[in-house]
């Protein structure tokens, strides 16, 4: 597999339509953008015009939500063709999606549904990831999802499952620090156990995001600033994994671009305190 590119400035933001004009006028002021793949897997038109324009000045990673890598449906060949075409166009630093299933029998649930952590699931995932990696000619980067249920069928912890999968499929991981916190709270485990089990050489990217705390449970809503507990966990992640490219996701109640830039400054500051000179 070819070595992936890294941005000079490792702090980025999710590319959102609300900020297109401001970025075009005032510049990106971040090291890179994460673009949502499905928004640009179209023949042509408005979304691609903007993508091309903003990509000229700023490196990008592609982040998908619908590859449905864990589904028992066959891999969607048309989806992969469209994604491969987008990869050729954007030349992203890396391509990520989620470790979950999103569709079954052709019906899309448009949600990141967790998988049982079983040998059967590992055996199902490994050849599928390899097929995608061969098609895209690069390692796939898979993200841990927030979950609200756990299966009776699971035979191992999520972190052992992820570590084993990365090894067997030779893929990389997108460590979503907020998702670790959300799932740890909902299921009642220690998020540091999760971090400690993930191999340091497999983490390609960190995600940070806000959530909704409902008292009894937390939902990964991406509609608030990053919570204090997640910043604390981020420090621990930087301490363990080093200077990994980091970005903030915001998908609802999207604030002005300046506000996200200011939030990203917190990540820069915390990371500089934790990263050895």
């Amino acid at each position: 597999m070819p070595t992936m590119l890294l941005p000079d400035d490792r702090f980025g933001l999710g590319l959102r339509t609300d900020h297109y004009e401001e970025i075009a006028d005032g510049g990106a002021r971040v090291g890179w953008f994460e673009a949502l793949s499905e928004n640009y897997m179209v023949e042509d038109g408005g979304p691609l015009r903007w993508l091309d324009r903003l990509r000229r000045d700023t490196p990008m990673a592609l982040h998908g939500v619908s590859i449905s890598i864990g589904s028992v449906d066959p891999l969607d060949g048309r989806y992969l063709d469209d994604l491969a075409r987008l990869v050729d166009r954007v030349e992203p630093m890396w391509v990520s999606d989620h470790l979950c299933f999103t569709a079954l029998d052709g019906v899309q649930m448009h949600d990141l549904l967790p998988l049982p952590y079983t040998e059967e699931a590992l055996n199902h995932l490994v050849p599928r990831i390899q097929t995608v990696q061969d098609r895209l000619k690069r390692r796939l980067v898979l993200e841990n999802v927030s979950s609200y249920i756990a299966y009776d069928a699971s035979e191992m912890t999520e972190w052992h499952f992820l570590a084993e999968l990365a090894q067997r499929a030779d893929c990389e991981l997108l460590l979503d620090v907020n998702n670790v916190h959300v799932s740890a709270f909902n299921h009642g485990w220690n998020p540091l156990d999760f971090l400690a089990a993930i191999p340091t050489d497999r983490v390609r990217q960190f995600h940070l995001a806000g959530h909704s705390h409902n008292g009894t449970h937390i939902v990964d809503t991406h509609d608030h600033p990053v919570a204090d507990e997640v910043w604390t966990l981020y420090r621990a992640a930087v301490e363990r994994f080093g200077p990994v490219p980091t970005m903030i996701e915001r998908d609802a109640r999207i604030p002005p671009y300046e506000e996200l830039l200011a939030e990203l400054e917190i990540a820069r500051r915390l990371a500089s305190e934790e990263t050895p000179a």
Partner: peptide
Amino acid sequence: VRSGGRASREIGLAVY
């Protein structure tokens, strides 16, 4: 679905 997490099984299912 397993019960016994901090969030109840019913709450977790309702989120989905």
